[in-house]
Simulated scan of single mutants.
Amino acid sequence: MLDTYYRIWVDAITVERSKKGEQGNWKAFTIIPMSILQGTNLLTFIFLIRIITHGGVPVVLSFNIFRERALNTFLAGALTFFVPFVILNYLLIFYNQRYNDLIRIYRDSNGRLYRKYFLITIGVIVIPLVLRLVF
């Protein structure tokens, strides 16, 4: 499973490097979308658990730091679905330029694997939302 994770990352890195160039900010354009997709996968998983348990599991943590509810919800969502994946991805992929070793080990598939991961992730979140609206 970790093998597939690394293959998707190598594909994403290759795609972004080819767009932005070696000196560009390709790292940010790689880690941010991948972390958002992984957070979307976690959100999908939590929605499925909520459907199975009939709403017994909260979707996000609740904070009361700001007066505005929208700011509290945004902060809770970012701390639940984005920041942990940025930290994890940085440690697994970018720390000590580990991505260079991964690129040598795994071949890229010209963006096909990255594109499939994106489409499957977005497609899977639609199914629980539609089921929630129907039932």
Rank of each mutant, 00 (worst) to 15 (best):
M1S: 15
L2G: 15
D3T: 14
R7G: 00
R7V: 00
T14G: 08
V15L: 13
V15R: 03
V15H: 00
E16P: 01
R17A: 02
K19N: 10
K19A: 07
K19G: 02
K20S: 07
K20N: 10
G21D: 02
E22D: 15
Q23S: 15
Q23E: 15
G24F: 01
W26G: 02
K27A: 09
K27V: 10
A28S: 13
A28D: 04
A28K: 12
F29I: 00
T30I: 05
T30P: 07
I31G: 04
I31W: 09
I32E: 02
P33A: 11
M34Q: 11
S35Y: 05
Q38C: 09
N41T: 10
N41W: 05
L42Q: 12
L43R: 03
T44W: 00
T44S: 04
T44P: 04
F47C: 14
I49N: 01
R50D: 06
I51E: 11
I52A: 14
H54N: 14
G55F: 03
G55L: 11
V57H: 06
P58Y: 02
P58W: 01
L61Y: 11
F63D: 01
F63Q: 01
I65K: 03
I65G: 03
F66T: 04
R69P: 01
A70H: 08
A70I: 14
A70Y: 03
N72A: 11
T73Y: 05
L75K: 04
A78Y: 02
A78D: 00
L79T: 08
T80D: 08
F81D: 01
V83C: 03
P84C: 06
F85N: 07
F85I: 07
I87M: 13
L88F: 10
N89I: 00
N89W: 09
L91H: 08
I93R: 02
F94T: 05
Y95T: 01
Y95Q: 11
N96A: 09
N96S: 13
Q97T: 10
Y99F: 13
Y99S: 05
D101N: 11
L102V: 03
L102M: 10
R104F: 04
I105E: 14
R107E: 14
R107N: 14
D108S: 15
N110W: 02
R112F: 13
L113F: 00
R115M: 14
R115V: 07
Y117F: 15
I120W: 12
I120G: 03
I120F: 13
T121G: 09
T121V: 09
T121I: 11
G123I: 13
G123V: 14
G123N: 10
L131V: 12
R132Q: 14
R132H: 09
V134N: 12
